[in-house]
């Protein structure tokens, strides 16, 4: 087939396309994945019995804001990466600042503690399981996000997969806060970030295969 015949073929019988709402079609899948994650945390792990008391602590809201803002920015960044040639704007810097800010708050809070209390603040009681539970909680979200990206056209596959994974990790971490009894900024700054990096690594590994078009 000659190239000009291909052009004619592609232009013939053309259907209108809605480019503004292209990713919205898969929002349902993301919503379902989010419901799975919340159900996993609430039913399999159990809601933190001291949640009601924790809600008045500023550290509780710092943790929620940390996860939610990373989830939102990561999601927005993944969608930008999924459109060819789209400028990334301030999103990468914004995400970096949020993580750095958390680390600064965490070091400051450690500095104000007595030396013998510091290791307790960093490790809490659940450091060994926290990153893994966040990763498991994020798994359905990662699949939904990758599926969403498959419907678009990412041109930097590994980076897109990593950012999708990180966003899924942040969403998973947000859901995990229903269960997690740890509020210390130092704990969140280390183990939550690690928990987000596990799906990010998984996304980077899977993306070249799953997202290729």
């Amino acid at each position: 087939m000659k190239t000009e015949d291909l052009v004619t073929m592609l232009a013939t019988g053309l259907e209108a396309v809605d480019s503004k709402h292209a990713p919205i079609r898969q929002m349902g899948a993301l919503g379902a994945a989010g419901a799975c994650s919340v159900a996993f945390v609430a039913l399999a792990l159990g809601v933190n019995p001291r949640l009601a008391a924790a809600v008045i602590a500023p550290d509780f809201w710092l943790r929620e804001a940390f996860c939610a803002s990373l989830a939102l920015l990561g999601f927005a960044l993944a969608l930008r990466l999924a459109r060819p040639g789209m400028a990334l704007g301030i999103l990468p810097a914004g995400m970096t600042l949020i993580v750095l800010g958390m680390w600064i708050v965490a070091s400051a809070s450690l500095g104000s503690l007595a030396p013998e209390a510091r290791s307790r603040a960093v490790f809490g009681a659940t450091a060994a399981v926290c990153p893994w539970l966040i990763a498991v909680t994020a798994a359905p979200l990662l699949l939904a996000l990758l599926w969403m990206l498959r419907g678009l056209a990412p041109t930097r596959l590994r980076l897109s997969g990593a950012i999708a994974g990180f966003a899924a990790g942040a969403m998973g971490a947000f859901a995990y806060t229903l269960h997690c009894p740890e509020l210390a900024p130092a704990f969140v700054a280390v183990w939550y970030v690690l928990g987000m990096l596990i799906p990010a690594a998984a996304g980077a590994l899977l993306a070249p295969r799953l997202l290729r078009w």
Partner: peptide, 14 residues
């Protein structure tokens, strides 16, 4: 992939 083009974005870049 024409549905991934956004009108607020330079066409050349896409």
């Amino acid at each position: 992939q024409r549905h991934t083009y956004r009108s607020d974005q330079p066409l050349t870049a896409w």
